[in-house]
Design a binder for these strands. Structure first.
Lengths: 255, 255
DNA sequence: TAGTGGTCTAGACCACCGC
DNA sequence: CGGTGGTCTAGACCACTAG
């Protein structure tokens, strides 16, 4: 302890001890040395290994728990969280994960794929008239039943290989998220009756009310994509949580 | 965190010290003794008043900060939160502001007001069976046309004077926000056809698709209210932005 | 029973802020 | 400068879970 050299740098600094411990655990997880569900060092292990007091180790683990990185159980131990980090910022889910989390089988049917140049879409993406965008029409299924039709327009400046993806295996969400961090999102919800073609695809009556979600996402200071999502309200719900509810909220019934 | 644990039954009463301190602050805010922006006792104040160690007082205040109840600044002090957490998934707008911002005249008609004790609602709010909630049914108008019916259930532990409000002048949103900072929100969007009564109120055909929004909000670690909002999609849209789009996004057409 | 996390104490030094 | 929060120590007792 007490190595307090006059490091000139700007960022590193004398990092607080509890942050050093957090970084140690986090990096071990990122490096794959600790995998989800696996046990991590106990508080006393960290006390010995890093020569800190137990309160400091406790703080590091407690904060990692609040960050959703690990789970802890009294009398048992601490473990790498199984559930994904869910960057609490947005509740923009991967449809395939969301279906599978509900215990249903996911399947995606590619209805259309190609280039487009509708001026209205180009405007929404901030593209010049001469620059086309990629377009995909995907029908998402849960247990064989169509639950959502996704009409997506992708910015080729952000995702040049969009059309080369196999969307039966990789969702647009997956592909776009692999190219850059989700920076911002704009969403509008409407209720509408499906037109004849949409009703046929979704296998619903034209009188069945559907949610129509328009979504525009930004990444790397570009409009990454615009999506028009139609879902029969009886088969798919859009929702989410913002902020941090108290922990006892988990016992409350869902909305 | 200490109050309101009604569902789980067994409640070991020797409450931890840090939770006693949290409850002390939270209840002072609920009682109106501490108002948003106002200074709260410092760590050393709490140490003396409750005869605990500083680490314990520190923990209580730190958790209240994470809960969004207070804000702390080194060298300055701790204060009751003023700003709403909002940010993430969706903007929770004041309907009257939202209508007026569109250049339309706002008017609210009180359809019903009173106490309720539907077990399903009590469960969603974490209330025991014997404890009623306040309930209001409000019809919001823009330029004289009904745009949204709001069925709202308010937690009397959070808003004891809810029923005394004049909702033609103060929206539920205004009243609730004046009592504590918005800590978290949970929302679900559905599309549905209005029933006969709802269609009559909103003056639409029963075949007109409506957005049904269920929303639950937390403040001061309590469920502040649950709202069921019905709006004809042709007259009102729900939308919002999360994250920070680039500046130039302002010139893009709306979704 | 041994190991884990949950809570707590009574000190301490520091960085920061406003006066 | 005095007060605030930010961090840290070296102990302690307890409740819980597992073998």
């Amino acid at each position: 302890m007490s190595c307090q050299l006059t490091v000139s740098g700007a960022m590193p600094e004398p990092l607080p001890q509890y942050q050093r411990l957090k970084a140690y655990i986090t990096e071990a997880i990122l490096a794959g040395e600790l995998k989800p569900g696996q046990r991590i060092p106990s508080e006393l292990d960290l006390v010995k290994r890093f020569e800190v007091s137990r309160m400091t180790a406790t703080r590091a683990l407690k904060e990692l728990e609040q960050d959703g990185v690990i789970s802890r159980m009294q009398g048992v131990g601490s473990f790498v969280s199984v559930k994904k980090t869910e960057s609490a910022l947005f509740e923009i889910n991967n449809i395939s994960d969301s279906v599978r989390r509900g215990g249903q089988a996911y399947f995606c049917q590619v209805i259309s794929l190609g280039l487009g140049s509708d001026p209205a879409i180009q405007d929404m993406m901030g593209l010049p008239r001469h620059q086309p965008y990629a377009r995909s029409g995907l029908l998402h299924h849960a247990d064989g039943v169509p639950v959502q039709f996704e009409d997506r327009y992708a910015n080729l400046a952000f995702a040049p290989d969009y059309l080369a993806q196999d969307f039966t295996k990789v969702t647009p969400y997956d592909h776009l998220m692999s190219l850059g961090p989700l920076q911002a999102a704009e969403q509008v919800f409407e209720a509408a009756r499906p037109d004849a073609e949409m009703a046929r695809l979704l296998r619903v009556k034209v009188s069945e009310p559907c949610i129509l979600l328009r979504r525009r996402t930004w990444s790397l200071n570009l409009v990454a994509s615009v999506a028009l999502i139609t879902a029969p309200s009886s088969r798919y719900r859009f929702g989410g949580t913002s902020g941090t509810p108290p922990d006892w909220a988990a016992v409350l019934p869902r909305l």
